[in-house]
Design a protein around this nucleic acid. Sequence first.
DNA 1: CGTGTGATCTCCT
DNA 2: GGAGATCACACGC
Length: 222
Amino acid sequence: MDRTFFLPDALSVAPQLLGAVLTVDSAEGTVSVRITETEAYMGLGTGGPYDPGSHSKDRKTERNASMFLDPGHAYVYFSYGMHYALNFVCSPPGIASGVLIRSGAITSGTELAMARRLEKRPASYSRNPIPEVQLARGPGNLAAALGLTRLTHDGLDLFSPPFAIHAAPNAPAAIRTGPRVGVAGIAGGPQFPWRFWLPGEPSVSTYRPGRDAPASGRSTAE
DNA sequence: CGTGTGATCTCCT
DNA sequence: GGAGATCACACGC
């Protein structure tokens, strides 16, 4: 995989990332995930349809600045005052589009991923162990398992340490698409079927409609 | 299975 | 001030 893999935009790249393996090194150790669920978000300058669900739909801000970097960089943002989420920057510099990495299966570093998830869990939650398939299920959980924060990882190059990215060894046998999870309004409806996942993978998150999102008819991640 | 809740950042009205 | 690319729990039917 080289940098051109992330061109020309998020919509074309999102399905091709299924099965790819992302590795993140840290002082604590290394965790790798096989990507099982992605979502495309198109933004300024992409020339495609206006995407009301994208952070970069209107203008560059302090938060989304990394989305305007070269393809193959990380855009990490803070979500709902509690979680981080990882995107892969697609499109040439100055043009903004990104793929949200929603879920993955941990392929190495399971113990470290588990420790990070348990440590981050609020005190009011149970102390029960987390099933392995849930360690990186959902964007907030995936970022936590990999130890990502905005301060430490936003704007970094995926082709340099602490990151490493490798394409799927084999093309997926099948890919499913549907509306994006938790996206409000029309952008979360069937006009934007920009969520992609590997069918039958237990690490794929459960679909949840956004506020005022049009009905789509699909409610499971089958 | 559905709905409501808190954690409290970033952006926009 | 309010909503949002979230998550896991508590509840009620």
